[in-house]
Amino acid sequence: MVIEDPKTNKLIEVEKLPDGTYKVTIYDKKTGEKKTITMSKKDLEKLLKAL
C-alpha cells in the first residue's frame, strides 16, 4: 500500500512482513531521502490516523 501525504510531500509505503510486523518506508519527494522502519500493527494504525 502506498499513501501520498500532500501536506508534507512524502510517500509512505507499507508492506506486511511474514512475522506480522509492518515495514514502513517514507520517501521525501523534495530531498530524495528514504527512511525505513519496522513497526507493529498498533503503531502503524496510530501513524495512519495522524495523517
Rank of each mutant, 00 (worst) to 15 (best):
K46T: 13
E13Q: 11
D43I: 07
T38H: 06
K23E: 03
L44P: 00
K29T: 12
K49I: 12
K10F: 15
I26F: 11
K35C: 05
T38E: 03
E15A: 08
T36R: 12
N9P: 01
I26C: 11
I12Q: 01
M39P: 02
P18R: 02
V24K: 00
T38A: 05
N9I: 05
L44C: 04
N9L: 08
L48S: 00
V24L: 11
V14G: 01
T8G: 12
T31S: 07
K34A: 10
E45D: 09
D19M: 13
K29L: 15
T36G: 08
K7T: 14
M39Q: 01
L11S: 05
E33V: 07
K35F: 12
T21A: 09
T25H: 05
V24D: 00
K16Q: 13
D5M: 06
L11I: 10
L48H: 00
L51I: 06
K23I: 03
V24R: 00
T31Y: 06
T31V: 05
L47F: 10
L11A: 05
L11Y: 07
K49Q: 08
D28E: 04
K7P: 12
P18G: 12
Y22R: 01
N9E: 05
K10P: 02
T36A: 11
D5E: 03
L17H: 07
E15M: 14
D43W: 09
E15Y: 15
K49L: 14
L48Q: 01
L47C: 03
M39K: 01
K46G: 12
K46E: 15
T31R: 04
V24E: 00
I3F: 03
K35V: 14
M1G: 15
P6Q: 06
G20N: 13
S40L: 09
L48R: 01
D5A: 01
T38N: 04
K7I: 14
G20C: 13
E13W: 15
T25R: 14
T25W: 11
Y22D: 00
K42A: 12
L44D: 00
D19Y: 08
K10L: 14
V2E: 15
S40C: 08
M39F: 06
Y22T: 01
V24T: 03
E33K: 05
P6D: 04
E13D: 04
P18C: 10
L11K: 05
I12N: 01
M39D: 00
K41W: 15
N9F: 06
V24I: 07
K46M: 14
V14Y: 09
T25I: 04
L48I: 07
G20T: 07
V2F: 00
K30D: 06
K49T: 13
A50N: 06
K7S: 14
K46W: 14
I3A: 01
A50H: 13
E4D: 10
K16E: 12
V24A: 08
N9C: 13
K42S: 12
V14A: 10
Y27E: 01
M39T: 02
T21W: 12
E13Y: 15
K30T: 13
E45A: 11
M1H: 13
P6H: 08
K35S: 11
K42I: 11
L44M: 05
D5P: 01
K35D: 13
K49W: 15
K46S: 12
K34C: 13
D43C: 10
K30R: 11
L17V: 07
K16C: 14
L48F: 09
T36E: 05
D28I: 02
K42G: 14
I12E: 02
I12P: 01
P6S: 07
K30E: 12
G32V: 03
E4C: 08
L44I: 07
K41C: 14
V2H: 02
K16Y: 11
K29C: 09
I12T: 03
K7V: 15
M1F: 02
N9S: 05
P6R: 01
M39C: 06
K46A: 14
T21I: 07
V14P: 00
V2T: 02
Y22G: 02
K30F: 12
K49M: 15
A50G: 05
D43F: 05
L51A: 08
K41T: 14
E33M: 07
E33A: 08
L17D: 08
K16D: 11
V2Q: 07
E15R: 11
T25L: 11
G20S: 11
E15T: 13
K7M: 10
D19G: 06
K7W: 08
Y22K: 00
V2D: 10
K34I: 09
E33S: 07
K7R: 06
T25N: 04
I26G: 02
G32T: 08
D5L: 06
I12W: 13
V2L: 04
G20K: 05
K34E: 05
K29Y: 07
E13K: 09
K29H: 06
D5Q: 01
E15P: 00
I12M: 03
E4G: 01
E4W: 14
L51K: 01
K42R: 12
Y27L: 02
D19L: 12
L17F: 11
S40D: 06
P18H: 13
T25V: 07
T36D: 05
E45T: 07
K23T: 04
L17E: 05
G32A: 07
L11C: 04
L47A: 03
G20L: 10
T8A: 05
K35M: 14
S40I: 06
G20W: 09
A50P: 04
Y22W: 10
K10E: 09
D28R: 02
S40P: 05
V14C: 03
L51E: 03
K23C: 05
